[in-house]
C-alpha cells in the first residue's frame, strides 16, 4: 500500500478525532490532501443542500420519537425465536408513524444486543428488520438461506407486498448458522409473492449453475418493481 496516509486517517484528522501523526509534518502531499478535505467540508456546509439534509434528518428523528425500550422487543422475541429454526417473526406492536424522507428505500437488520446495523452476525443474535419503503409505498422482503431456499420475511403473511405504514409491525428473529440474504422489492402497487419469489429463485439458480455465491447476481426484471435492494448477511461462529 501507499506510504501516504489513508483516507480514513485523513478523515479522522479532518474531524479532529485523532492527533496528527508525525508523517504529516514530513509529507507535503498529505498536508495538501488534508487541506483540500477541510476546504471541501467548509464549502459543503455552506450549501443549501447541507442545511436541507440536516433539517430533514432532524425532522425524521423527531417523528420517530419516543423510542420503544429495546428490552421489550427481546422479551417478546426470545421465547418464540428459540422455537424456530431459521427466522421467527414476532409482532411487537406499532412502531412510530412512518416518515417518508428522501434517501432511497432500504431494509436493515438491527442487532438488539448493541444496536449494530447490518453488522456481521453470530448464531443466537436477535435482530429486528427495519423496512424503509419511501419514496415508494409497498415493500416485499424475501430471505434466502445458504441452501438457496427462499421464503417471505415481510410481510410474513399474505401473498402481496405490504405497506410499512399500514402494516405497522417489525419482525424480530433469531439468527441461526449459515449466511443468508434479504431481497427487498419496493413498488408503488402491491406485487404478488409468486412474481418476486420467482425472480429471486431464477437469480439464485443462475449463480449456482456458475458455481458462484447465491448473491452473485440481482433478481431478474420484475414487472411493477420500482427499486430492488439486497442485503447479504454473513453469519460467523460466535467468538
Amino acid at each position: 500500500m501507499s506510504e501516504h496516509l489513508s483516507n480514513l486517517v485523513l478523515d479522522e484528522l479532518t474531524v479532529g478525532s485523532r492527533p496528527p501523526p508525525s508523517h504529516l509534518d514530513a509529507c507535503e502531499e498529505c498536508r495538501a490532501r488534508l487541506a483540500r478535505r477541510r476546504e471541501r467540508g467548509v464549502a459543503l456546509r455552506a450549501t443549501p443542500e447541507f442545511s436541507r439534509g440536516k433539517a430533514r434528518i432532524l425532522a425524521h428523528a423527531e417523528a420517530a420519537a419516543p423510542a420503544r425500550p429495546w428490552f421489550s422487543w427481546v422479551r417478546l422475541a426470545a421465547p418464540l425465536a428459540m422455537a424456530m429454526s431459521l427466522a421467527v417473526l414476532v409482532w411487537v406492536g406499532s412502531p412510530s408513524e412512518g416518515t417518508r424522507i428522501k434517501g432511497g428505500p432500504f431494509v436493515s437488520l438491527v442487532r438488539l444486543r448493541d444496536g449494530a446495523v447490518d453488522a456481521p452476525l453470530s448464531p443466537g443474535d436477535v435482530v429486528t428488520l427495519s423496512v424503509h419503503a419511501a419514496p415508494h409505498r409497498y415493500a416485499f422482503v424475501l430471505v434466502t438461506d445458504a441452501g438457496g431456499a427462499t421464503a417471505p420475511l415481510w410481510p410474513s403473511r399474505g401473498d402481496r407486498s405490504g405497506d410499512p405504514v399500514e402494516v405497522p409491525a417489525s419482525p424480530t428473529f433469531v439468527i441461526t448458522p449459515g449466511d443468508f440474504m434479504l431481497d427487498a422489492f419496493f413498488s408503488d402497487e402491491p406485487l404478488p409473492l409468486a412474481r418476486v419469489r420467482e425472480a429471486v429463485a431464477r437469480a439464485v439458480a443462475g449463480c449456482e449453475e456458475r458455481g458462484r455465491p447465491a448473491d452473485c447476481a440481482p433478481p431478474s426484471e420484475v414487472k411493477g418493481l420500482a427499486r430492488h435492494y439486497r442485503l447479504s448477511v454473513t453469519v460467523s461462529p460466535a467468538p
Binding site: L8, D11, F106, D114
Partner: peptide
C-alpha cells in the same frame, strides 16, 4: 450522494448505541 447522506443518517439514528460504542467512529461512517 445526497440520497446516500440521508440513508446513512437514518441508519445512524437506528443504531446510536453502536455508533457511540465505536472506538473509531469514522470506521462506522466508512
Amino acid at each position: 450522494a445526497w440520497d446516500a447522506v440521508q440513508e446513512v443518517f437514518c441508519r445512524l439514528l437506528e443504531s446510536a448505541g453502536a455508533f457511540r460504542a465505536e472506538a473509531r467512529p469514522m470506521t462506522y461512517i466508512y
